[in-house]
Design a protein around this nucleic acid. Structure first.
Lengths: 342, 342
DNA sequence: CTGTTAGCGCTTTCAA
DNA sequence: TTGAAAGCGCTAACAG
């Protein structure tokens, strides 16, 4: 009477262990283990294998993750730290990462906040880390993850940590080129934080495209801003107060672009008649703005997938290089940019 | 020469174990364990404690989570499944949950997607689950988490799983009352999916406020829509085609409200002159829309915190009731709602 | 005040 | 083709 029938699975009994399957089938736990984990090098009578498999299913056996992790020193999970949850860009990156991780049998655990804070919570639960914070708290190599293998996502820093990025310069150049083709020559740039790699690279792309097309880069036409509506609003307010006023604005982020549009309205400017605006990254909301926002779409999902691949490389002890996802940025033309009115 | 000095911590050596501290201090592992985990019932010479603590710090000891989890059968982590990452509401709920979890020494692990999919990844890594999917795939009690204690967040279902919600009816009533006070009597409602608890409860609040104020509930003035821009756009298009046209719209979600605003514009209607719009939930973007969107702010952070509290109650074996967070909804008046023009 | 001991559930070498 | 045995790092009951 000490135990109820161990062959009957039941909602509220302790989960089945390897040992239970062994007992129920008369096969040793070590063999059961090898059968269930699909050990190819194992030769076992087909009938034995069947019996074990059936019993495992019948008892709805789930391997105990803690025990396995203790034994193998692997958690089969990877962590990802992003600055904020409600950000389309990171949501898409995470999607790509998640899919790639699943493919390799890894779980992706997402956490928000600063690396320093979140690391404590994640430590010991993951085998490696994707660091997706774009604006840099200054990160020291050691500080980043103890000895946790890590990949920088969407940013590059001289930390000895491999990075995976997209072609921000190229994307920014594309946006700028669009504006130039439309006939604009006085084009402002609401840049992202310049302590962030992404902010710098987008600025760079803007700058070099201007030069390529024979236009002068004018620092005054440039405003550094945070990647949110408030930042875009402030940045645009400054640039729109300039005389002569820029006829177009390339904004380094969708949220900031929304802020910039608000600023334009407050200045009594009509978009795109008086001022053209192009955003960076695409988001569903862009299509529903007034006017719908022209943006450039970056291969973010691919970046997430590549980041996981790089990390798994690191875990396998391979050397991993910085990689820049090659899928080309794509201009999504909507209605917020038009030729300047002469 | 088999090992380098175990007293020197070094970047790339295997992490220190309890055993190492024991060896280095001449104190038994069991005592070290009790000292480091702050066992109150332990009496130990202050000097011994110091020595152990110092050595632990010196070797930068981090307890092995897998071993601890195996031993204690506790992971000290809780999971949260949300339908999508880029959603302010869930971002805020998660923030509240995270904070409360940390307070109790738990880590919060966030995953996106369907419960069924994500559960496999989370299983064995968490002690309990916060289920924050608002639109219901039909969920069976057993299906939800094996025997994992779970709390439903932001939705109520007859599943035998305790829920934590906010006063959606009250919030919806507040929005509706605002419109009525402004003088509107023909008020449409773009509702959320009616297979989702939140959608139903907001509809309910709209309905009953209408009745309370002596206004008739007219089903035709109601459109069911998904919680995104496209849904809001379509719902609003339908309602705005009605004759006589509603003079105001209460939209069950910010994203849908943005879509509704776009629809109004496409119909050549000016907001709020021709049509007033009130959204549900607040988001930074609301302030930067044209016109800035009036919304009702719900106590989402509190809901997240309460959800964790309820879950921890479950983990402690306590009985847990459904709870509705009492902090009152708050009307955030901006410019998208005004008196109807007679 | 401190140490001994057993064992959590699993994987893996080695032997039969 | 299968089994025995050891041990991952930790905690907790019990003994001294």
């Amino acid at each position: 009477m000490s135990e109820s029938d161990p062959l009957q699975p039941s909602a509220n009994r302790r989960p089945a262990r390897l040992k239970d399957i062994a007992a129920a089938t008369g096969v040793d736990t070590s063999v059961v283990s090898r059968i269930l984990s699909g050990d190819a090098a194992l030769s076992v009578r087909p009938e034995t294998r069947r019996r074990v498999l059936d019993m495992a299913a019948h008892l709805s056996y789930r391997p105990n993750r803690a025990a396995r992790a203790l034994k193998t020193a692997r958690t089969m999970a990877i962590g990802m730290i992003v600055p904020e949850l409600d950000n389309v860009a990171y949501a898409i990156i995470a999607q790509g990462a998640d899919r790639q991780a699943s493919k390799s049998g890894y779980a992706l655990l997402v956490a928000t906040g600063s690396v320093r804070d979140r690391l404590a919570a994640l430590e010991g639960r993951i085998d490696g880390l994707l660091v997706g914070v774009a604006t840099s708290e200054t990160l020291q190599v050691g500080e980043i993850g103890g000895d946790l293998p890590a990949i920088l996502v969407n940013r590059r820093e001289a930390l000895g940590i491999p990075s995976v990025t997209v072609a921000d310069e190229q994307g920014a150049a594309l946006a700028t080129a669009h504006l130039i083709s439309l006939g604009h020559s006085r084009i402002g740039h609401i840049a992202g934080p310049q302590n962030a790699d992404t902010g710098r690279r987008r600025m760079q792309g803007y700058h070099s495209e201007l030069n390529t097309r024979g236009l002068e880069f004018i620092p005054e036409l440039t405003a550094e801003a945070s990647y949110d509506e408030a930042g875009g609003e402030m940045g645009a307010s400054r640039l729109l107060a300039l005389r002569p006023r820029p006829t177009a604005l390339f904004v380094a982020n969708v949220r900031a672009a929304i802020g910039a549009m608000a600023a334009a309205r407050r200045h009594g400017l009509s978009i795109p008649r008086d001022i053209s605006i192009v955003g960076f990254h695409d988001a569903p909301v862009a299509m529903y703005l007034d006017p719908p926002l022209t943006t450039v779409r970056m291969p973010l999902r691919e970046m997430g997938g590549q980041a996981v691949e790089s990390l798994l490389g690191l875990l396998d002890g391979r050397d991993v290089e910085d990689v820049c996802v090659t899928a080309p940025p794509e201009l999504v033309v909507r209605a917020s940019a038009a030729p300047p009115n002469a």
